[in-house]
């Protein structure tokens, strides 16, 4: 039955037009099996629209999207069978109990009998809602509701999970729990999650797609993206001199090293001096710097790699930072 496919999710030239504006404009990306991809962008960037197209909630205006080789427009039933979806607001019926609700969703997804019962038990255990199975959903806290929403999404053990802002509106403890849960789901499922919370992507995802105003502005792994933004290797250096050499001496010595392009004095606390050392493109001067400091008889306290935080990358790419960062 299964059709051959290369990527679990393949989006090509996807466009979604509304009467007055274009929500998503000609975007393309792909997600491999087992990956967790973060869909990142400010509010209104087109994240939810893209997800709704992938879940066959709405058809695309242009372009194609395939899930496990099936086109969302031509073979929606096949796609729907393979997708678990958690919309931004968990789609729960407040008047139902958790157990009855999960059983209902299971039946909707085509499960029956003992299989259904077993899966309801499993997912309520997994999403930590087993203790509230007989409670009405209307009586549950937001965190529990969100977990019921997640349980609902994975009940038929779908190949692909699509989670729209799975941690929005939760308190920090619940956010952590939800993230752990999502990380645990990785591997068995291919996951796309959207968020505008940056640490979340850093914490969970292997790959990010940054989307802004309907366009994809970057697609890469978290490390590559932050690295790429910086361009060359930069380190922050904290050291203590012997008391004789001053700040300018240190600076001169470091600048004389080959492979170092720039040395910036940052600040001094007590006897410790902090510098920012940038290597020439394509070089890494870290080893030379360390050796040079130690050879001069100074104490090296700290040396750490400087990279843009994802936050800076994000703001730069989505135009939130007018001067384009430090580059």
């Amino acid at each position: 039955m299964a059709v051959p496919y290369i990527h679990m999710i393949q989006v090509e030239g996807l466009t979604k037009r509304y009467a007055r504006h274009i929500a998503v404009d000609n975007i393309s990306f792909s997600v491999d099996k087992g990956e967790i991809v973060g869909f990142l962008g400010p509010n209104g960037a087109g994240k939810t629209t893209t997800m709704r197209v992938l879940t066959c909630f709405m058809p695309p205006s242009d372009g194609t999207a395939t899930v496990a080789g099936y086109d969302v427009f031509k073979k929606p039933m096949e796609v729907k069978k393979r997708i678990g979806y958690l919309p931004e607001a968990p789609p729960v019926y407040p008047e139902m109990s958790v157990g009855a609700y999960l059983a209902f969703v299971g039946r909707l997804k085509g499960m029956t009998g003992p299989d259904l019962k077993r899966r309801v038990d499993e997912v309520s255990e997994r999403c930590a809602v087993a203790d509230v199975r007989n409670r009405l959903i209307s009586k549950l806290s937001k965190g529990y509701r969100q977990r019921v929403g997640l349980a609902q999404a994975i009940i038929h053990n779908p190949e692909v999970l699509i989670l729209d802002e799975p941690t929005s509106g939760l308190d920090p403890k619940q956010i952590n729990e939800t993230r752990e849960l999502i990380k645990n789901l990785a591997g068995e499922h291919t996951i796309i999650l959207s968020t505008h919370i940056l640490p979340e992507v850093e914490a969970i995802c292997q790959k990010i797609v940054i989307i802004n105003k309907g366009h994809i502005v970057a697609t890469d792994s978290v490390e590559n993206l932050t690295h790429r933004m910086r361009g060359s290797d930069a380190i922050s250096l904290e050291l203590e001199t012997d008391g004789i050499a001053g700040q300018s001496d240190v600076q001169q010595r470091l600048e004389s090293l080959s492979g170092v392009s720039k040395v910036l004095f940052k600040h001094a606390t007590d006897h410790k001096l902090t510098f920012e050392v940038e290597s020439l493109p394509g070089h890494s001067a870290r080893a030379d710097v360390a050796r040079s400091v130690v050879n001069a008889g100074w104490n090296l306290f700290e040396m750490k790699s400087l990279s843009y935080s994802l936050e800076e990358v994000f703001l730069q790419l989505t135009g939130g930072m007018p001067d384009g960062g430090q580059q």
Partner: peptide, 14 residues
């Protein structure tokens, strides 16, 4: 109103 319509139409039912 509840948003549960998204669950129904994204489930494998006609």
């Amino acid at each position: 109103r509840q948003g549960t319509i998204e669950l129904l139409v994204t489930s494998p039912v006609h």
